[in-house]
Amino acid sequence: MAEEDPGAAAPPHGCPGTSSAQAGRAAACQGCPNQGLCAGPAPAPDPAIEEIKEKMKTVKHKILVLSGKGGVGKSTFSAHLAHGLAEDETKQIALLDTDICGPSIPKIMGIEGEQVHQSGSGWSPVYVEENLCVMSVGFLLSGPDDAVIWRGPKKNGMIKQFLRDVDWGEIDYLIVDTPPGTSDEHLSIVQYLSSSHIDGAVIITTPQEISLQDVRKEINFCHKVKLPIIGVVENMSGFICPKCKIESQIFPPTTGGAEKMCQNLNISLLGKVPLDPQIGKSCDQGQSFFSEIPESPATSSYRNIIQRIQEYCGLHHSQEKLSNQGME
């Protein structure tokens, strides 16, 4: 796993590197199965990147939601980040579900079974509220049992279409929910948005070491692809029994949880969200738990986290403006 090329296995001894001028021409390249590939002209960048850049000019902020493990609450977070941001009626929010094989966003947002319409300017996303729209592969399937059995390239093609061919319009925040891991979907999103500026990534984890291990990999992924990290959210962090009000650690933070990890890696911890059975219930019913359980500690924790994300985006946006003005 060489530093300069995250995807490559250990390169052969003396390899000049794929981006070197000597690529394919050095002595060490003799007999390498990739010599022809390296010696040939560098592949042209995908023209879609430029098209997506044009499309994304009307999208102010882009936030990726990532996790190492599955089932830690990524989609729940993405959906409620969207709900929370959309409470400001002057802002336009879009939520893009890039989990092609397990699209849960339509159910959580209460718009399962909706269809995407084609208009002159592209696919129209599905609107949950006037200022909140959603795009997911779930809208393109014929039913809840329909499986998307696709390998990487087809998933990448779909993600490209979502970014390029959807009629997003004027958007303040685009939230991109991803599947767990560091593979095709993540590389594609980062690559397709490489000219469009991503504000950063929010990484969701649970407190136990098994989950944190994968989060460290996710953080390394962000560093490698130069994706800024807005911060980490520790989800399912403790549970208060509704009967005796005593807190239990269902997923014990045996190594200090996300807090310790963030300290060690110098990353912000955006907050901890406790387990509340009402969260899962609200998601199953496709409702926002902000309105269902406004008094829950989970709700206030979520609100704090969302505020910190807004502040981060606002700050970086003004910094960027300043530096752009400086350049002109």
Binding site: P6, R151, T182, K217, K224
Partner: peptide, 17 residues
């Protein structure tokens, strides 16, 4: 097979397969 436990395996499908 990883050198360090936190190394990310950033592979697309064909390599995983």
């Amino acid at each position: 097979l990883l050198e360090k436990p936190d190394d990310a395996v950033v592979w697309r499908g064909p390599k995983k397969n």
